[in-house]
Amino acid sequence: MTIYLVSVATLLVVILLVGLARLIRGPSNADRMLAAQLFGTVGVGVLLLLAEAYSQAALLDAALTLALLAPMTLLAFIRLSGARQ
């Protein structure tokens, strides 16, 4: 079971790296923020899988922190660049 869960986590990291193409290519800043948002979700998934695979419940706290704070960047982006002057 551990090997299976770590394999799923590995595949998730691989598709994160594939999704990097959208982040690099753009074309708009909103696209880049969307890619970063997807990376945040993938990161939470990987941390959950690693927590279960190595039975380290403390990694769930890291996933919780990530889930809470990953949208902060997006909120800052919307708040800062969406403000009409």
Binding site: S28, A30, M33, L34, Q37, T41, V44, L48, A57, L60, D61, A63, L64, A67, L68, A70, P71, L74, L75, I78, S81, G82
Partner: peptide, 24 residues
């Protein structure tokens, strides 16, 4: 805690997707 993380990510994705669509 697992359920809490899932609910949190769902809420965050709903809010942020609304914000991005509105921004665009």
């Amino acid at each position: 805690r697992l359920l809490l993380i899932w609910i949190l990510v769902m809420a965050a994705s709903a809010f942020s997707c609304y914000l991005v669509a509105n921004y665009v």
